[in-house]
């Protein structure tokens, strides 16, 4: 009787361990399959012309230069605008607000925005800017991306500032530093690596965002320096090219997808390294 129970428990345990290992295998297999497919299909499209020529008409040769430039430009502006706002807001939550009801509300709303569907952000900017201006524009795309950057930076900044030991703050206060100076010269500096991590994660997040750009920056087949006009971006080009019927365009879409993924993965690995060194 006892032996039977023991055998059954062992069997259940074995089964459970097997399932758990296969779950991990599924996860790793998924990553391997996706990266494998990206490499197989993307490498074929990689060439120097990718970076020098603009997106082609179907049937002719071309590259992704305008899309790459558009993505880099719009992401850069979004990060430059969104980062200070995010850092300031995160600073309020960790330093000034901490236990106030305002901070509670901001924290709650920020975490909602952090996971809110990005297509909703696109609709918001569409109503806010595109409808008012009467046309799609790179400005609108930048605004949409900046709105996505802010919550990411707020969350990491607050978390990182909370890791700074209070003794540092007390030490700054004891030599008579006003709070603003103590924050800037002591707490920010102590949490610098963590804050940089947050910004890197934000860049990684927006460099692949497609949905909020579809009806803000739209897309542009040509090179454009005009922020008041639609601007191409890698994700938007991938979306339209992948949905097309042309093999050339498919190849470019895969190459673009490979570029984005490499960028994102590199950024998140760097962020991870900085974070692990910090701890």
């Amino acid at each position: 009787m006892n032996r039977a129970i023991y055998a059954r428990r062992r069997l259940v345990n074995r089964l459970f361990l097997l399932l758990s290992v296969s779950a991990a295998a599924i996860g790793i297999a998924a990553l391997a399959l996706i990266l494998g497919a990206l490499l197989m299909n993307g490498v074929a499209g990689l060439s120097p012309t990718l970076f020098t020529e603009t997106t082609p008409a179907p049937g002719s040769a071309g590259g992704l230069a305008n899309a790459i430039a558009g993505s880099v430009l719009m992401s850069a502006v979004a990060v430059v605008v969104g980062t200070p706002i995010g850092i300031f807001a995160g600073t309020y939550l960790a330093e000034y607000g901490r236990h106030t009801w305002i901070a509670f509300v901001v924290r709650f709303v920020n975490d909602i925005l952090l996971s809110a569907p990005s297509i909703i952000i696109g609709l918001f900017i569409y109503e806010l800017l595109v409808v008012r201006m009467g046309h799609f524009s790179a400005w609108a795309g930048m605004a949409a991306l900046a709105v996505i950057v802010i919550p990411v930076v707020v969350r990491t900044t607050e978390n990182m500032l909370l890791l700074v030991p209070n003794t540092l703050r007390e030490a700054a206060a004891s030599i008579g530093a006003p709070r603003a100076i103590a924050i800037r010269a002591v707490t920010w500096r102590a949490a610098r690596a963590g804050i940089v991590t947050g910004v890197l994660l934000a860049v990684a997040r927006i460099s692949g965002e497609t949905a909020p750009l579809l009806f803000t920056a739209l897309n542009n087949q040509f090179w454009s320096n005009n922020f008041n006009a639609p601007m191409a971006s890698l994700p938007a080009v991938i979306f339209s090219f992948a949905n097309s019927a042309y093999d050339d365009w498919h190849r470019l879409a895969w190459a673009g997808a490979l570029l984005i993924t490499l960028t994102v993965l590199t950024l998140s690995i760097i962020a991870r390294l900085i974070e692990s060194r910090q701890r």
Binding site: A30, S207, E209, T210, F239, A257, I260, T261
Partner: peptide, 11 residues
């Protein structure tokens, strides 16, 4: 597994 979370949805 965490890198899986970083891959953009369009991919």
């Amino acid at each position: 597994i965490e890198l899986l979370a970083g891959i953009p949805s369009i991919i």
